[in-house]
Each structure stands twice: as C-alpha cells, then as structure tokens.
Amino acid sequence: MNLAPQVETVELSESDLDSVTGAGVTAAGSGGLQLETPLVGLCADVAAVASAEGVGSAAAVHTTAA
C-alpha cells in the first residue's frame, strides 16, 4: 500500500487569480492591547477588513487572574 500523499500542480492564469482574489481594492486594520499586573493580565485584539466583496471584523479579549 502506498501511503505517500498525492500532489497535483496546476498553472493559474491572471484571470483565474483575479476571480479568486476578487481583484478589488482591499483595506485592513488591526490593533491590540496587552496589560499585565501582578494580579491581572488583559489581552485584547481587534481586526477589520473591507473589500469590494464585503466587510469583516473580529474582536477578542482574554483575561487571567492570579
């Protein structure tokens, strides 16, 4: 039994890449905050992306206590 993974390569044209990437204008931004004290730790992250296809955002907060 041959358990080696099968890999196939394919050439993509510029128009193929445009259809995958959207070929539109994209803007993104992100930021984060990390605060640590002897009693508490706080980490917060935010991210946002806007393109011709739509808008996406994410936020996360993580805390630790001693």
Rank of each mutant, 00 (worst) to 15 (best):
N2P: 14
N2S: 14
N2H: 11
L3W: 07
A4V: 10
P5W: 09
P5G: 02
Q6F: 08
V7G: 00
V7L: 14
V7Y: 13
E8H: 10
E8Y: 07
E8Q: 08
T9S: 08
V10T: 14
V10F: 15
E11I: 02
L12E: 12
L12S: 12
S13R: 09
S13F: 10
S13C: 07
S15W: 11
S15F: 09
D16N: 13
L17R: 09
L17I: 15
D18G: 11
S19H: 11
V20I: 15
V20Y: 14
T21D: 13
G22N: 03
G22S: 04
A23R: 05
V25M: 06
V25Y: 07
T26M: 07
A28P: 01
A28Q: 14
A28E: 09
A28D: 04
G29D: 04
G31F: 12
G31T: 08
G32V: 02
G32K: 04
G32L: 02
L33N: 04
Q34N: 12
Q34W: 08
E36N: 08
E36K: 12
E36D: 08
T37W: 08
T37H: 07
P38H: 13
P38V: 06
L39Y: 12
L39A: 12
L39Q: 11
V40E: 10
V40C: 08
V40H: 13
G41I: 00
C43P: 03
C43V: 13
C43Q: 15
A44G: 01
A44P: 00
D45K: 06
V46A: 15
V46R: 10
A47G: 02
A47F: 06
V49L: 02
V49E: 00
S51F: 00
S51N: 01
S51H: 01
A52Q: 11
E53Q: 03
E53V: 00
G54C: 00
G54R: 02
V55D: 05
G56N: 01
S57A: 15
S57R: 08
S57D: 08
A58C: 05
A59G: 15
A60Q: 03
A60W: 00
A60H: 02
A60E: 04
A60I: 01
A60P: 01
A60R: 12
H62K: 10
H62N: 08
T64R: 15
A65Q: 11
A66W: 12
